[in-house]
Each structure stands twice: as C-alpha cells, then as structure tokens.
C-alpha cells in the first residue's frame, strides 16, 4: 500500500530526477509533458525508485511506467503485503 509518506518520497524522486517542483506532480505527469523525461532519465528514475523502496520492476514493467499514475500503482502493488502470507522480502518496504 502507498501511504502519504511513500507518495511524497515517490514525488521527491521524480522531482530530483526530472528537475520538477514536487507539488506540481500529479497523475497527469508523464513522459509526454516532462521535458527531461527521456529514455536515459527513465532508467535513472526507475533505478532511483527501486533504490528508495527496495523493490524491483520487471522488464515488462520498465517500459510501461511512463507516467506518475502508472508508476504509483505499480509501486503500490509491490508495497502491498500479499494476503495471508508474508510479504516477499523485496516487496515490502523496511521502515
């Protein structure tokens, strides 16, 4: 699950990688309208998110996470503990 703190951290990462004001980042923020979001910075952004949250995106996900909205929901799914069984070690954020 994504709490407010996680969401703020995610926005902060995008702000740092793409040189944005974090308060302007919302679901409409995407590769279409962010000047610095090119294929090179896309990798840096993905790796930064993985580094911050201790998660790993699959090869398929890599190419899809081209907007804040998609990134946020993919991350939320990884941070969500699986029902009834312990969360995967790489899927849970250590607080």
């Amino acid at each position: 699950m994504m709490g407010d703190a996680e969401e703020l951290s995610l926005k902060q990462i995008l702000a740092e990688v793409f040189e944005l004001d974090p308060s302007t980042i919302d679901n409409t923020t995407s590769i279409e309208n962010v000047e610095l979001w090119d294929s090179l910075q896309h990798f840096s952004m993905i790796v930064s998110v993985e580094q911050e949250f201790g998660v790993r995106f699959s090869e398929d996900e890599m190419g899809e996470l081209v907007s804040y909205e998609r990134l946020r929901s993919a991350l939320a799914a990884k941070l969500k503990p699986t029902n009834g069984s312990p969360a995967k070690p790489d899927g849970q954020r250590v607080s």
Binding site: Q12, E16, E19, L20, P22, N33, E35, L36
Partner: peptide, 10 residues
Amino acid sequence: MPAQVNVAIP
C-alpha cells in the same frame, strides 16, 4: 510542464 526549481535542494 516547465522545469522548475525544487526548493528542497540546497
């Protein structure tokens, strides 16, 4: 969206 200065960065 124009690039803006992030206030949190020193």
